[in-house]
Design a protein around this nucleic acid. Structure first.
Lengths: 106, 106
DNA sequence: TGTTTATTTGGCTATAATGCCAAATAGCAT
DNA sequence: ATGCTATTTGGCATTATAGCCAAATAAACA
Protein backbone atom coordinates (compact mmCIF):
# COMPACT_ATOMS: atom_id res chain seq x y z
CA UNK A 1 0.00 0.00 0.00
CA UNK A 2 1.58 3.29 -1.06
CA UNK A 3 1.71 6.41 1.03
CA UNK A 4 -1.15 8.23 -0.65
CA UNK A 5 -3.46 5.25 -0.35
CA UNK A 6 -2.59 4.84 3.30
CA UNK A 7 -3.38 8.47 4.00
CA UNK A 8 -6.72 8.13 2.25
CA UNK A 9 -7.73 5.23 4.47
CA UNK A 10 -6.54 7.12 7.52
CA UNK A 11 -8.73 10.06 6.56
CA UNK A 12 -11.75 7.80 6.17
CA UNK A 13 -11.01 6.06 9.46
CA UNK A 14 -10.87 9.40 11.27
CA UNK A 15 -14.43 10.17 10.24
CA UNK A 16 -15.74 6.75 11.19
CA UNK A 17 -13.90 6.91 14.50
CA UNK A 18 -15.61 10.18 15.29
CA UNK A 19 -18.97 8.47 14.79
CA UNK A 20 -18.07 5.27 16.62
CA UNK A 21 -19.39 6.13 20.05
CA UNK A 22 -22.93 5.60 21.39
CA UNK A 23 -23.33 9.15 22.70
CA UNK A 24 -22.02 10.65 19.49
CA UNK A 25 -24.37 8.53 17.40
CA UNK A 26 -27.20 9.65 19.61
CA UNK A 27 -26.16 13.26 19.14
CA UNK A 28 -26.07 12.87 15.36
CA UNK A 29 -29.51 11.33 15.48
CA UNK A 30 -30.90 14.23 17.53
CA UNK A 31 -29.23 16.83 15.34
CA UNK A 32 -30.78 15.26 12.28
CA UNK A 33 -34.14 16.51 13.54
CA UNK A 34 -33.01 19.99 14.53
CA UNK A 35 -30.08 21.94 15.99
CA UNK A 36 -29.52 21.64 19.72
CA UNK A 37 -27.34 23.39 22.26
CA UNK A 38 -24.92 21.58 24.54
CA UNK A 39 -27.02 21.51 27.66
CA UNK A 40 -30.05 20.16 25.80
CA UNK A 41 -28.03 17.25 24.52
CA UNK A 42 -26.43 16.72 27.91
CA UNK A 43 -29.89 16.50 29.44
CA UNK A 44 -30.94 13.81 26.97
CA UNK A 45 -27.75 11.79 27.36
CA UNK A 46 -27.54 12.22 31.12
CA UNK A 47 -23.81 12.80 31.09
CA UNK A 48 -21.65 15.62 32.36
CA UNK A 49 -21.91 18.74 30.22
CA UNK A 50 -18.15 18.82 29.80
CA UNK A 51 -18.25 15.28 28.46
CA UNK A 52 -20.91 16.18 25.92
CA UNK A 53 -18.98 19.28 24.93
CA UNK A 54 -15.97 17.06 24.23
CA UNK A 55 -18.08 14.68 22.14
CA UNK A 56 -19.29 17.63 20.11
CA UNK A 57 -15.77 18.84 19.54
CA UNK A 58 -14.83 15.39 18.25
CA UNK A 59 -17.70 15.55 15.77
CA UNK A 60 -16.81 19.12 14.83
CA UNK A 61 -13.16 18.27 14.22
CA UNK A 62 -14.28 15.48 11.92
CA UNK A 63 -16.47 17.92 10.00
CA UNK A 64 -19.66 16.13 10.91
CA UNK A 65 -21.30 18.98 12.81
CA UNK A 66 -21.08 22.77 12.76
CA UNK A 67 -21.46 25.10 15.72
CA UNK A 68 -23.07 28.51 15.88
CA UNK A 69 -23.17 30.86 18.82
CA UNK A 70 -26.45 32.42 19.89
CA UNK A 71 -26.04 34.52 23.00
CA UNK A 72 -24.41 32.39 25.65
CA UNK A 73 -25.53 29.18 24.00
CA UNK A 74 -23.83 27.26 21.23
CA UNK A 75 -26.08 25.46 18.81
CA UNK A 76 -24.84 22.45 16.91
CA UNK A 77 -26.24 21.18 13.63
CA UNK A 78 -25.29 18.47 11.15
CA UNK A 79 -22.94 19.78 8.48
CA UNK A 80 -23.49 16.75 6.22
CA UNK A 81 -27.07 15.41 6.23
CA UNK A 82 -25.81 12.33 4.41
CA UNK A 83 -24.36 11.08 7.65
CA UNK A 84 -27.76 9.61 8.38
CA UNK A 85 -27.12 6.97 5.74
CA UNK A 86 -24.73 5.42 8.21
CA UNK A 87 -27.63 4.35 10.32
CA UNK A 88 -29.28 2.27 7.63
CA UNK A 89 -25.94 0.71 6.75
CA UNK A 90 -25.33 -0.19 10.37
CA UNK A 91 -28.84 -1.59 10.69
CA UNK A 92 -28.17 -3.86 7.73
CA UNK A 93 -25.15 -5.33 9.44
CA UNK A 94 -27.12 -5.79 12.63
CA UNK A 95 -29.97 -7.52 10.83
CA UNK A 96 -27.52 -9.78 9.09
CA UNK A 97 -25.98 -10.65 12.43
CA UNK A 98 -29.40 -11.34 13.94
CA UNK A 99 -30.25 -13.71 11.10
CA UNK A 100 -26.92 -15.45 11.58
CA UNK A 101 -27.70 -15.91 15.26
CA UNK A 102 -31.17 -17.23 14.49
CA UNK A 103 -29.69 -19.66 12.00
CA UNK A 104 -27.30 -21.06 14.56
CA UNK A 105 -30.13 -21.76 16.98
CA UNK A 106 -32.08 -23.92 14.55
CA UNK B 1 -32.23 8.13 27.34
CA UNK B 2 -33.74 4.83 28.50
CA UNK B 3 -31.88 1.58 28.82
CA UNK B 4 -33.10 0.02 25.60
CA UNK B 5 -32.22 3.09 23.55
CA UNK B 6 -28.80 3.23 25.10
CA UNK B 7 -28.14 -0.39 24.22
CA UNK B 8 -29.22 0.21 20.65
CA UNK B 9 -26.72 3.01 20.21
CA UNK B 10 -24.04 0.87 21.83
CA UNK B 11 -24.72 -1.90 19.33
CA UNK B 12 -24.46 0.52 16.43
CA UNK B 13 -21.27 2.03 17.83
CA UNK B 14 -19.67 -1.42 18.10
CA UNK B 15 -20.10 -1.94 14.37
CA UNK B 16 -18.75 1.47 13.45
CA UNK B 17 -15.84 1.03 15.82
CA UNK B 18 -14.93 -2.20 14.07
CA UNK B 19 -14.73 -0.30 10.79
CA UNK B 20 -12.95 2.74 12.20
CA UNK B 21 -9.37 1.76 11.45
CA UNK B 22 -7.41 2.37 8.26
CA UNK B 23 -6.21 -1.20 7.88
CA UNK B 24 -9.67 -2.59 8.49
CA UNK B 25 -11.20 -0.22 5.94
CA UNK B 26 -8.56 -1.32 3.48
CA UNK B 27 -9.40 -4.96 4.20
CA UNK B 28 -13.11 -4.35 3.66
CA UNK B 29 -12.30 -2.65 0.38
CA UNK B 30 -10.18 -5.58 -0.79
CA UNK B 31 -12.74 -8.15 0.31
CA UNK B 32 -15.42 -6.32 -1.65
CA UNK B 33 -13.62 -7.46 -4.81
CA UNK B 34 -13.04 -11.06 -3.74
CA UNK B 35 -12.22 -13.22 -0.72
CA UNK B 36 -8.63 -13.19 0.51
CA UNK B 37 -6.61 -15.18 2.99
CA UNK B 38 -4.71 -13.63 5.86
CA UNK B 39 -1.26 -13.63 4.35
CA UNK B 40 -2.49 -12.03 1.13
CA UNK B 41 -3.97 -9.14 3.08
CA UNK B 42 -0.90 -8.89 5.29
CA UNK B 43 1.23 -8.58 2.17
CA UNK B 44 -0.87 -5.72 0.86
CA UNK B 45 -0.97 -3.89 4.18
CA UNK B 46 2.67 -4.53 5.03
CA UNK B 47 1.94 -5.31 8.64
CA UNK B 48 2.69 -8.29 10.82
CA UNK B 49 0.46 -11.27 9.98
CA UNK B 50 -0.62 -11.52 13.60
CA UNK B 51 -1.76 -7.90 13.49
CA UNK B 52 -3.82 -8.52 10.37
CA UNK B 53 -5.30 -11.64 11.91
CA UNK B 54 -6.41 -9.57 14.88
CA UNK B 55 -7.96 -6.96 12.59
CA UNK B 56 -9.89 -9.71 10.85
CA UNK B 57 -11.15 -11.07 14.14
CA UNK B 58 -12.40 -7.60 15.05
CA UNK B 59 -14.33 -7.47 11.77
CA UNK B 60 -15.59 -11.02 12.27
CA UNK B 61 -16.80 -10.33 15.81
CA UNK B 62 -18.74 -7.35 14.48
CA UNK B 63 -20.35 -9.57 11.84
CA UNK B 64 -18.78 -7.67 8.97
CA UNK B 65 -16.77 -10.55 7.51
CA UNK B 66 -17.03 -14.33 7.51
CA UNK B 67 -14.17 -16.80 7.53
CA UNK B 68 -13.87 -20.12 5.76
CA UNK B 69 -11.08 -22.64 6.04
CA UNK B 70 -9.50 -24.08 2.93
CA UNK B 71 -6.62 -26.34 3.74
CA UNK B 72 -4.21 -24.47 5.95
CA UNK B 73 -5.48 -21.12 4.73
CA UNK B 74 -8.42 -19.14 6.02
CA UNK B 75 -10.32 -17.09 3.50
CA UNK B 76 -12.28 -14.06 4.56
CA UNK B 77 -15.19 -12.54 2.69
CA UNK B 78 -17.67 -9.72 3.35
CA UNK B 79 -20.77 -11.00 5.10
CA UNK B 80 -22.75 -7.82 4.35
CA UNK B 81 -22.03 -6.31 0.92
CA UNK B 82 -23.91 -3.20 2.02
CA UNK B 83 -20.90 -2.22 4.09
CA UNK B 84 -19.52 -0.63 0.95
CA UNK B 85 -22.10 2.12 1.28
CA UNK B 86 -20.02 3.40 4.15
CA UNK B 87 -17.39 4.49 1.74
CA UNK B 88 -19.63 6.79 -0.24
CA UNK B 89 -21.00 8.24 3.00
CA UNK B 90 -17.50 8.89 4.28
CA UNK B 91 -16.49 10.43 0.97
CA UNK B 92 -19.41 12.85 1.24
CA UNK B 93 -18.20 14.04 4.60
CA UNK B 94 -14.68 14.42 3.25
CA UNK B 95 -15.86 16.37 0.24
CA UNK B 96 -17.89 18.63 2.47
CA UNK B 97 -14.84 19.22 4.62
CA UNK B 98 -12.73 19.97 1.57
CA UNK B 99 -15.25 22.56 0.37
CA UNK B 100 -15.30 24.10 3.81
CA UNK B 101 -11.52 24.38 3.73
CA UNK B 102 -11.60 25.92 0.28
CA UNK B 103 -14.21 28.42 1.45
CA UNK B 104 -12.03 29.53 4.31
CA UNK B 105 -9.15 30.24 1.96
CA UNK B 106 -11.09 32.65 -0.23
C1' DT C 1 -18.04 46.40 37.36
C1' DG C 2 -19.91 42.31 39.10
C1' DT C 3 -23.15 38.37 38.36
C1' DT C 4 -25.32 34.83 36.12
C1' DT C 5 -25.55 31.40 32.45
C1' DA C 6 -23.42 28.41 28.93
C1' DT C 7 -19.56 26.31 27.22
C1' DT C 8 -14.81 25.00 26.83
C1' DT C 9 -10.45 23.38 28.45
C1' DG C 10 -6.63 21.57 31.75
C1' DG C 11 -5.56 17.90 34.51
C1' DC C 12 -6.17 13.63 36.12
C1' DT C 13 -7.32 8.54 36.37
C1' DA C 14 -9.17 4.50 34.34
C1' DT C 15 -10.03 1.81 30.49
C1' DA C 16 -9.47 0.31 25.71
C1' DA C 17 -7.02 -0.22 21.37
C1' DT C 18 -2.81 -1.17 18.73
C1' DG C 19 1.07 -3.82 17.26
C1' DC C 20 4.81 -6.65 17.75
C1' DC C 21 7.17 -11.01 19.20
C1' DA C 22 6.98 -15.55 20.55
C1' DA C 23 4.45 -19.56 21.49
C1' DA C 24 0.46 -22.40 20.47
C1' DT C 25 -2.72 -24.49 17.24
C1' DA C 26 -4.48 -26.63 12.89
C1' DG C 27 -4.17 -28.88 8.55
C1' DC C 28 -1.58 -31.24 5.00
C1' DA C 29 2.15 -34.01 3.30
C1' DT C 30 6.21 -36.80 3.82
C1' DA D 1 5.40 -39.16 14.12
C1' DT D 2 7.90 -35.26 11.83
C1' DG D 3 8.09 -31.34 9.30
C1' DC D 4 5.99 -27.50 6.84
C1' DT D 5 2.71 -23.78 6.14
C1' DA D 6 -0.96 -20.73 7.70
C1' DT D 7 -3.25 -18.75 11.32
C1' DT D 8 -4.42 -17.64 16.00
C1' DT D 9 -3.53 -16.35 20.67
C1' DG D 10 -0.92 -14.85 25.11
C1' DG D 11 1.79 -11.40 26.86
C1' DC D 12 3.57 -7.07 26.96
C1' DA D 13 4.56 -2.02 26.12
C1' DT D 14 2.80 2.01 23.94
C1' DT D 15 -0.63 5.10 22.76
C1' DA D 16 -5.41 6.72 22.49
C1' DT D 17 -9.97 7.41 24.35
C1' DA D 18 -13.45 8.47 27.94
C1' DG D 19 -15.22 10.78 31.74
C1' DC D 20 -15.26 13.61 35.63
C1' DC D 21 -14.07 17.74 38.44
C1' DA D 22 -12.53 22.20 38.71
C1' DA D 23 -10.91 26.26 36.62
C1' DA D 24 -11.09 29.31 32.62
C1' DT D 25 -13.58 31.71 29.06
C1' DA D 26 -17.49 34.15 26.75
C1' DA D 27 -21.76 36.56 26.43
C1' DA D 28 -25.70 38.95 28.38
C1' DC D 29 -27.39 41.95 31.71
C1' DA D 30 -28.17 44.25 36.28
Amino acid sequence: MDDLTRRQYEARARILKALAHPSRLFIVDRLSAKPHCVQDLAGMIEADISTVSRHLSVLRNAGIVKDQKEGTKVFYRLSVPCVLNFFSCVESVMESNAKEQAGLLE
